[in-house]
Computed example of a mutant assay.
Amino acid sequence: MRVVATWDPAAYLTFDDHRSRPFYDLIARIGAQMPRRVVDLGCGPGHLTPVLARRWPDAEIVALDASPEMVAAARERGIAAELADAADWEPGPADDVVVTNAVLQWVPQHRELLPRWIAALPAGGWFAMQVPGNFAAPSHALVRELAAEPRWAGRVTLRGTEAVAEPTEYAELIAGAGARADVWETTYLQRLTGSDPVLRWIEGTALRPVRDALDEDAYAAFTAELAPRLRAAYPPRPDGSTWFPFRRIFAVAHRLD
């Protein structure tokens, strides 16, 4: 089952620096020199789309996202974003570079789509993806545990560890599609500050389905129960900051023929 969330661009950008770093690490591994068209598949609020334009100034940049809220936010930034669902998207004959950053964890069938997308790329095309690899971490496991308790059971649909594959599976999918695979993982040890910073972090992403499923009072009650569990799992340091390990999985496919 696909979990559809209503997105709040402002909440998503609360930790912009931390959320943006993997994007730069991802595109650094794309070797395209003069692509005709570069697709930002799942552009979000468009804050990183200009990075692609600076990297490839002669390319046509296409920004797509499935969230009307994110498309609106991107357009406010001057990005000509269009509404499109990654699950229904197909590469065009001039799409020499496709970048999908922290998107495919929301597309349950992306394992089936990935080989098809790669096969549809033009010769020499690049497909670069990055997904969070922390679905087994306390930040997500505690949300699922709370949602399964009698008070909340059946009220919220959440993604589990099956939302993304392990690096080896992505490497095999890319290689099986006849492309060169460059796959790795990184755990960023992020220093978060402020009150209940891990709760604030996941409010921009993992808690969106919870927020959509519950009314305002119920959501406040849910997060009030969740907050102390997160504080116990991610205790504050003496200076009040919190270390938050965040694992990310990267895969870059280069179609050679």
Rank of each mutant, 00 (worst) to 15 (best):
Met1Gln: 11
Val4Met: 07
Thr6Val: 12
Asp8Lys: 04
Pro9Cys: 09
Ala11His: 10
Thr14His: 15
Thr14Trp: 11
Thr14Met: 09
Ser20His: 14
Arg21Asn: 12
Ile27His: 10
Gln33Asn: 09
Pro35Val: 13
Pro35Asn: 13
Leu41Glu: 01
Gly42Trp: 00
Gly42Met: 00
Gly44Val: 00
Pro45Glu: 06
Leu52Asp: 00
Arg55Leu: 06
Arg55Pro: 03
Pro57Phe: 11
Ala59Glu: 11
Ile61Ala: 02
Ile61Val: 14
Ala63Pro: 01
Ala66Ser: 14
Arg75Leu: 10
Arg77Ile: 07
Ala84Thr: 08
Ala84Cys: 09
Val98Cys: 04
Val99Ile: 15
Ala102Thr: 13
Val103Phe: 03
Arg111Leu: 14
Arg116Cys: 08
Pro122Trp: 09
Gly124Ile: 12
Phe127Gly: 03
Val131Pro: 00
Val131Asp: 00
Pro132Lys: 02
Asn134Asp: 11
Ser139Lys: 02
Ser139Gln: 07
Ala141Gln: 13
Leu142Gln: 03
Pro150Phe: 14
Leu158His: 02
Glu162Trp: 08
Glu162Ala: 14
Val164Cys: 00
Glu169Trp: 13
Ala171Trp: 07
Gly176Tyr: 12
Ala179Gly: 10
Arg180Ser: 15
Arg180Ile: 15
Tyr188Pro: 02
Leu192Lys: 09
Asp196Cys: 04
Pro197Lys: 11
Leu199Ser: 05
Ile202His: 07
Thr205His: 02
Thr205Met: 04
Val210Thr: 12
Val210Tyr: 04
Arg211Ala: 05
Asp215Leu: 06
Asp217Trp: 07
Ala218Thr: 12
Pro228Cys: 09
Pro228Gln: 09
Leu230Trp: 05
Ala233Phe: 08
Phe244Val: 01
Arg248Asp: 00
Arg248His: 06
Phe250Thr: 01
Phe250Ser: 00
Ala251Met: 00
Ala251Ser: 00
Leu256Arg: 09
Leu256Ala: 06
